[in-house]
Simulated scan of single mutants.
Amino acid sequence: MKRINLYWQIRGVLRLLFRLGNWHVHGVEHVPLGGPLLIVVNHISAFEAPLVAATLQIGPIAVLAKAEFAHPLNPLGWLMRTMDVIFVHRGEVDRHAIKAALQVLRAGGILGLAPEGTRSKTGGLQRGREGAAYLALQSGAPILPVGVWGQERIPQDLLHLRRPTYHVRFGPVFTLEYDRARPKRQQLAEATDVIMRRLAVLLPPAYRGVYADVEETSGGSQ
């Protein structure tokens, strides 16, 4: 039986819900009309992926999510399986997930992930992992960096009957080129640093974490 994809229906519901808050969107002129596209976003709460999906007019977006969500007893498991979710086993090289992610990009699709690999406990950026860089170098897909902030306070604001405020900022799309003449490990490290710094400049200083030394540019946060 063919699986029903409810991406657009769920996105519509999310847009209605997020409009109840103070939803600020910046840099939409940087968003391309379609794929292939690798979307990278910071990760400090459970709301980044829903906010980005609700903000973008393109899709559907396949996302990487930890395999724990696939457990039958996880309340979000069924909902996530109705969309294009690639479950990843953390703490190991999940070749199945890597292959599935590359297939999405090579087919001209859109893939979203958090290059930090896990949620930040401090609210600031952590050191990026090499997964995003690997996918970008192997597929040649353009990268769209997205900085999201304020969403981590949604539960607390709702608890205190306050209207939440959150921001989604898109940066310029960029690409990475794989040079077969250079060491692969070195290229992955350098590309990861490029991705994380492109992401950091979109965020307010308090959210930049270990990339606090990033230089302000015209694409930076205000």
Rank of each mutant, 00 (worst) to 15 (best):
R90Q: 09
M196G: 01
A136P: 07
I58E: 00
S221K: 11
I10Y: 07
L199A: 05
G27K: 14
A62P: 04
L37R: 01
Y178L: 15
P115F: 10
R153N: 12
I154Q: 08
G12A: 03
L144E: 13
V194T: 14
I143N: 13
I39C: 00
L76N: 06
L64V: 04
V168N: 03
F170I: 12
I98E: 06
G27C: 14
S120E: 09
E48T: 02
E152H: 14
L135A: 09
L176V: 03
T122V: 09
Q151M: 09
I98K: 07
G131R: 04
Y7T: 01
R180P: 14
G91Q: 05
T122F: 05
R15K: 05
E130F: 04
H96D: 14
K2F: 11
H89D: 10
Y178C: 13
A54D: 01
D179A: 15
P205V: 08
V104P: 08
L176R: 00
G91E: 05
H89P: 05
V168G: 02
I86Y: 15
R119M: 04
H89N: 09
V104F: 12
M196H: 02
S218W: 15
G91N: 05
I61V: 15
Q186H: 07
G35Q: 10
E29Q: 13
E116N: 07
F87E: 00
K2R: 11
R81V: 03
G147L: 06
P142A: 11
F47S: 03
A114L: 10
E177P: 02
A133P: 09
A62W: 06
R127C: 07
P50Y: 13
I154W: 00
L76V: 09
T217Y: 11
M196L: 01
Y134H: 12
A107K: 15
K121G: 13
G77S: 12
G108R: 10
K121W: 10
L202M: 05
R127H: 08
S45R: 03
K66N: 13
L16C: 12
L64I: 02
L105V: 12
S221A: 15
L17Y: 08
H89I: 05
L102F: 11
